[in-house]
């Protein structure tokens, strides 16, 4: 695994008068879980699309190690984007290298508790299950950076908590660099090694905070809440971003 440097000098949409992103620098350490927190519409999805290579209309550079290449990406989109005419397993298999042994997918399905549903079509799955399939697909390609764009939005609280725990479990078994977009501070604290707060129009880094809570304590809601209170008290500048 290699570190990744992202530098976006300017990103302006053709129809917009003002730039969406100006002089944004992100440095991702290998196997680090980073949460990007910012108000909706601040350009977080634009940033992820640039990193994913879906949007090439920007000035800047992405460095993987020392090379100017596009990193290998796993992307969990806001909606799962599964092919409805392919089964759960086929959806995952299509994304991965054909030479990869099938046991890798078997193991991922098991961790995400989807072994029984692997031959079902996405229309027969609940939203929570579809999201889990999208997460498996992203891990299965063994990406250099895994992008997650509010993957738990519109899930009810218990389901969101369950998928979040499964995600953390999977990530601890197979550590990858994750860039996770959310506007839910509690969720961000529960997941991240480091929080990056972003402002809107143009998007800029407001502050970067390392989460000191140990991984074993992340399930403890009291610890999360107390850190959140402390964070809001010590960093008043982030209040307006939530």
């Amino acid at each position: 695994m290699t570190d990744i440097q992202i530098q976006i000098d300017n990103k302006t949409y053709p129809a917009a008068a003002d730039p969406s992103i100006v002089d944004l620098k992100l440095s991702l350490t290998s196997e680090e879980f980073i949460c990007l927190v910012g108000p909706s519409g601040c350009g977080k999805t634009t940033l992820l699309n640039i990193i994913a290579g879906l949007d090439n209309d920007y000035e800047g550079d992405i460095l993987v190690g020392r090379q100017h290449t596009a990193p290998k990406i796993g992307y969990v989109f806001q909606n799962p984007r599964l092919l409805p005419w392919r089964t759960v397993r086929e959806n995952i298999e299509l994304a991965v290298d054909e030479r990869q042994p099938p046991e890798v997918i078997d193991a991922l399905l098991e961790v995400m508790q989807l072994t029984a549903a692997q031959h079902s079509y996405p229309e027969h799955l609940s939203l929570g299950m579809s999201r889990r399939v999208a997460i498996i697909r992203a891990f299965a390609v063994d990406p250099e950076v895994l992008l997650m764009d509010e993957p738990f939005v519109s899930l009810d609280a218990p389901t969101a908590r369950q998928v979040r725990e499964l995600l953390l479990n999977l990530w601890q078994q197979r550590p990858h660099t994750i860039l996770f977009v959310t506007h839910d501070l509690r969720e961000a604290i529960a997941l991240a090694d480091r929080l990056i707060f972003l402002s809107a129009a143009p998007m800029q880094v407001v502050s970067e905070i390392v989460v000191p809570i140990s991984r074993s304590e992340r399930g403890n809601e009291l610890a999360i809440e107390s850190f959140r209170q402390q964070l809001l008290k010590n960093h008043p500048e982030i209040k307006q971003l939530l």
Binding site: G53, G74, L94, R137
Partner: peptide, 12 residues
């Protein structure tokens, strides 16, 4: 377009 983007991103 969402599915086409997914395919591009996963290098189909």
């Amino acid at each position: 377009q969402d599915l086409l983007d997914m395919a591009r991103c996963y290098r189909f």
